[in-house]
């Protein structure tokens, strides 16, 4: 049984309720408000301790915005982000002030997409990795920092002797290890990984995925794994949530989702992934049209203009995200009634 389904009985580590993030759209000299981009529009899901929840979608679907809202790298417009702290209290991250958030930083951390932009080029590894120790744990002594950083570097597969080097001495894959070391030095419980392997070369990508899997076991981490790459998501996640134009359209345990998708968008997305096998070529049935503009989405179900199963109802009513089968949520009026093709394992 996959870890995701059985974890349902537990209390979630993080619960996102009706999260919204609207960006104002302004125009002209007086910066008149002419509309809103609904980057994240009423998204709800939960992450359970020890699991990896994947958040997939195409660019502009709001997956990165969701991830950044959860860590309050950006402030959400509305909604609750309930985090269960190590002490057992449930706090709403969305409403805390910067000072109130600081103690929570120990428990939730982030891994970034671009390993070149996410490390300060003016600081060496010791300073980069030990910064959370200084500002959160208040560790001042250099020996203690050196010791903790050495331990951390070893854990992510870098030699502790590299501690005094600067980021420019490292390749993309190594930099991503440094980013991981910084994120994990406080032993957080939740790690939000925003496209952590997208910028890496194929041969290095596997190394970082392996590292993330190993560290999850060793440190009992919970991941929110944001990616546009379905293959990677399928490889690393227990459960997967699919986003389209700011909304969640489907959420299910990984194998269930890939074997029996319930939302036509999920089906189309999976069909569009090029399979690295020349014998399976006919499978590619491209989705027509393009992702709508989140400032001006279509009526009803946002996917209906591109959906091959679209009915008049779809144009009029937006389907809610409902549990169509146990543990399998989908936002489609005809979830379960359509025979959609997944990927055979």
């Amino acid at each position: 049984m996959p870890a995701g389904t059985m974890a349902q009985d537990e209390k979630p580590l993080l619960e996102v309720r009706s999260l919204k993030k609207y960006f104002p759209l302004r125009k002209g000299f007086f910066r008149r408000l002419i509309g809103q981009i609904r980057a994240v529009d009423d998204v709800s899901f939960a992450i359970y301790e020890g699991e990896t929840l994947g958040l997939v979608g195409e660019s502009g679907c709001g997956k990165t915005t969701t991830a950044r809202c959860i860590l309050r790298a950006i402030d959400p417009t509305a909604g609750q982000i309930l985090f269960r702290t190590a002490a057992g209290d449930v706090v709403d991250v969305a409403t805390l002030s910067e000072d109130e958030l600081r103690p929570l930083r120990r428990e939730m951390q982030m891994i970034f997409q671009d390993p070149y932009a996410s490390l300060n080029p003016r600081m060496n590894l010791l300073d980069i990795v030990s910064e959370p120790l200084i500002v959160i744990e208040g560790i001042k002594s250099r020996e203690e920092r050196v010791q903790r950083v050495a331990q951390m570097l070893e854990m992510v597969g870098l030699r502790p002797e590299y501690m005094l080097r600067y980021p420019h001495a490292f390749s993309g894959g190594q930099r991503q290890r440094i980013v991981i070391a910084r994120a994990l030095v406080l032993h957080p419980r939740l790690v939000v990984a925003d496209e952590p392997v997208s910028a890496l070369d194929v041969s290095v990508r596997a190394q970082v995925l392996n590292l993330m899997l190993r560290l999850q076991q060793e440190l009992s981490l919970t991941y929110l794994f944001v990616s546009h790459d379905l293959s990677v998501v399928k490889h690393i996640c227990n459960r997967v949530a699919v986003m389209y134009v700011g909304k969640l359209v489907e959420l299910a345990p990984t194998e269930e989702l890939f074997a029996r998708p319930l939302h036509p968008y999920t089906e189309a997305l999976m069909a569009a992934v090029p399979i690295p096998d020349p014998r399976i070529r006919s499978a590619m049935l491209p989705l027509e049209g393009e992702v709508p503009n989140p400032a001006n989405p279509p009526s009803g179900c946002y996917f209906h203009p591109r959906c091959r199963y679209s009915q008049p109802l779809c144009r009029e009513q937006a389907p809610p995200l409902q549990e169509a089968q146990p543990g399998h949520l989908a936002a489609c009026h005809f979830a379960g009634q359509l025979s959609l093709r997944g990927v055979s394992p």
Partner: peptide
């Protein structure tokens, strides 16, 4: 920039972000 966001998520206060990063 990501590294400034990272510093903020690491818990750095505004002054440290300005003067260190």
């Amino acid at each position: 920039e990501d590294f400034v966001v990272a510093a903020r998520l690491a818990g750095c206060k505004r002054r440290r972000i300005i003067f260190r990063h």
